[in-house]
Computed example of a mutant assay.
Amino acid sequence: MSDLFNVSSSPHVRAKVSTNRIMLYVIISLLPATIFGIVNFGARALLLIVATIIACVLSEWIFEKIVHKKSTISDLSAVVTGLLLALNLPSTLPVYQAVIGGVFAIVVVKMLFGGLGQNFMNPALGARCFLLISFTGSMTSFTYDGVSGATPLAIIKDGGSYDTMSLFLGTHAGTIGETSILCLLIGAIFLLAMGVIDLRIPGTYLITFVVFIILFSGHGLDGNYIVEELCSGGIILGAFFMATDYVTSPITPRGKIVFGICLGCLTGIFRLFGASAEGVSYSIIFANMLVPLIERVTIPNAFGVIKEKKKKEAKANE
């Protein structure tokens, strides 16, 4: 594993903000959705959240002990991974499966690729997809208020409709952290206010997705259907809290726009034409793998390069 620092091309901007400060901001921004999830789904949700966070932190600490590497658990990135993973799980998931997901996120997706800054996909989403493949039954079983049933997104995909106020507030079945759009937007506003994220990726993502479903869903400009699609499933959680991950998203301004467009189109394809009602997790992971190519074609020209190129072309034409 390399200890080299991977940085973008100049110019560089020095900032006083540290990694653990950014991670702390992310944790704070997720608290409204986390607290609502615990209230909404009960003590079982709290147990899963605690279990995944402990699994992620311990996995990172043990792995670094084994490979004789300096401990990095103080940067809080493992805590963020555990919390995000838990918020993407149904509250009925067996605890041991959540723990397996936490270990997979840290050891396989993050540490085996060199640790924070080296992983090529979002660890929490990588673990969620691993759990979906390994434990499909328990990962797609949702219970709300003691009753098992389909999520609003599955109902909408089958041609039904759902109360938009319930979707906005979060009083319905779903994963622990995705249900309350109100709480997620409060957290997103906090991240924007703190300068942790900007609107390029989530804004482009959501706009592209809306355009896609207007064109291909068969509902046209049905405002109620558009709101239902935006307020159900994990698209808001994914757009603001996982697609904006510094490590697995483009650093170039144009690259962020292209990244958001890819996310919107992929999510639309998975939701409208895929077998599953949801598609946010797979969309973000696929887009994560496109990041190196996106950055290569969207890297800005160095200062003076265009002018110098024109001079050379003028001399060649003389």
Rank of each mutant, 00 (worst) to 15 (best):
K16P: 07
K16T: 13
V17A: 14
V17R: 15
V17N: 12
V17G: 11
V17M: 14
V17K: 15
V17C: 12
S18G: 07
S18Q: 11
T19W: 10
T19K: 10
N20V: 14
N20T: 15
N20I: 14
R21V: 10
R21F: 11
R21I: 10
R21A: 14
R21K: 14
I22R: 15
I22S: 11
M23K: 08
M23Y: 09
M23S: 08
L24W: 13
L24E: 07
L24M: 13
L24R: 07
L24Y: 12
L24I: 11
Y25H: 14
Y25N: 14
Y25Q: 13
Y25S: 13
V26H: 02
V26N: 04
V26Q: 04
I27H: 05
I27W: 01
I27S: 00
I28T: 06
I28M: 07
I28C: 05
I28Q: 06
S29E: 04
S29T: 06
S29K: 01
L30W: 01
L30E: 02
L30V: 03
L30Q: 01
L31H: 02
P32C: 06
P32T: 06
P32E: 05
P32M: 03
A33P: 04
A33H: 07
A33V: 14
A33C: 06
A33Q: 07
T34N: 05
T34G: 04
T34W: 05
T34E: 02
T34Q: 02
I35G: 03
I35K: 00
F36E: 08
F36G: 09
F36C: 10
G37M: 10
G37F: 10
G37Y: 09
G37I: 10
G37Q: 10
I38F: 10
I38E: 09
I38L: 09
V39S: 07
V39A: 09
V39P: 01
V39C: 07
N40D: 12
N40K: 13
N40L: 14
N40I: 09
F41R: 05
F41D: 08
G42V: 08
G42A: 01
G42S: 06
G42Y: 07
G42M: 05
G42I: 09
A43M: 10
A43G: 06
R44F: 10
R44Q: 15
R44V: 13
A45C: 09
A45W: 06
L46C: 11
L46M: 13
L46W: 11
L46N: 09
L46G: 15
L47V: 14
L47C: 10
L47K: 13
L48G: 10
I49V: 14
I49D: 12
I49W: 11
I49Q: 11
I49L: 12
V50Q: 07
A51H: 04
A51R: 03
T52D: 07
T52N: 06
T52Y: 04
T52A: 05
T52F: 03
I54H: 02
I54T: 12
A55P: 02
A55Y: 05
A55K: 02
A55H: 00
A55L: 01
V57Q: 06
V57C: 04
V57N: 03
V57S: 02
V57L: 03
L58K: 04
L58H: 03
L58D: 04
L58N: 01
S59G: 00
S59Y: 02
S59F: 01
S59P: 01
E60F: 00
E60C: 03
E60N: 02
W61D: 06
W61H: 12
W61N: 07
W61F: 13
W61G: 00
I62F: 05
I62P: 04
